[in-house]
Simulated assay, not measured.
Amino acid sequence: MTLTETNSWTGIRKELLRRIHSRVWQPGEQIPHEADLAEEFGCARTTVNRALRDLAESGLVVRKRRAGTRVALNPPQRATLTIPIIREEVEATGRTYRHSLLERDFRPLPPMLHGAFPATLSEDVLYLKTLHFADNRPYAYEERYINLNAAPEARDTAFDEVSANEWLVHNAPYSHGDISFFAVSADKTLSRKLDAGSGTALFAMERITWAGNMPITHVHLIFAPGYRMRTEI
């Protein structure tokens, strides 16, 4: 990597990450001081500092005042999760996608979500129920709340041609999110919507996305039997 490729903090971060992963710097080993790295890369010390702070926030290095920076002994192993567009997910398997909007309503946020999804309680949110299909077979059942302060254009969007899932990915950029995975037992409603036997264990997820401190959407997704999630590590 040339100096011109490492004169930004992202370029320096990439090179430091390479040295950590290739064991140029062993776990627990102290890495060169910021001033030495700045001289090596021909950049300002603050640029190196920014790269090291990002690595520290990722848990890959440990920084202590006056003790320098060391490679973490047990760096966290993290999976990379992105918000998939369900249409693309279905079409990638060679099947035909469509969705059906079952309900669209403006209503107050339910009390059970007040703590997790702090939208303005005095204002309505947009509530949607959607059923996603793959080759005309149920694929996923979705219940979603959209904070109209975060995505005001959703108020006048029908979501009949483009699903809320796809629309939000393209129109409501998020900074971070919270996600949980769990299993649910198919009740009478889920059995009917997802063509699943009563009591069948179904894969479910709950996700909240944020733009800074403002919540964008809360979604509860339940998938038809046989669904598997794959990601990179």
Rank of each mutant, 00 (worst) to 15 (best):
T157V: 03
T120E: 14
S100H: 14
G212Y: 04
A79Q: 15
H218L: 06
L101G: 07
Q77F: 12
A150M: 00
F181W: 08
D124C: 06
T80N: 11
D156G: 05
A72W: 06
I208D: 07
L131T: 05
A172H: 04
A38F: 04
S191D: 04
E5C: 07
V169N: 14
F181E: 07
T217L: 12
T157R: 03
E89R: 05
A56K: 07
H220R: 13
P225L: 02
D105P: 08
M1F: 10
R230L: 15
T4N: 11
E57F: 00
Y227P: 10
E34Y: 10
N74C: 08
N165Y: 01
R228Y: 10
E153W: 09
A154D: 11
L55T: 05
R207P: 01
L190T: 06
A154Q: 05
A186S: 02
E143K: 04
L37H: 07
L17P: 04
I20N: 00
L148R: 02
E40F: 13
Q77N: 11
G68N: 00
C43P: 04
T10M: 15
T209E: 15
S122K: 12
E153S: 13
Q77Y: 09
L102Q: 15
K64G: 10
R66V: 15
P118W: 02
P75H: 01
W25P: 03
A183N: 15
E142D: 10
Y127V: 04
A134W: 01
A154W: 02
L131Q: 06
F106I: 09
Y141F: 15
K188H: 14
L128D: 06
R207H: 07
A224D: 02
L221C: 06
R53T: 15
S198L: 14
M205S: 08
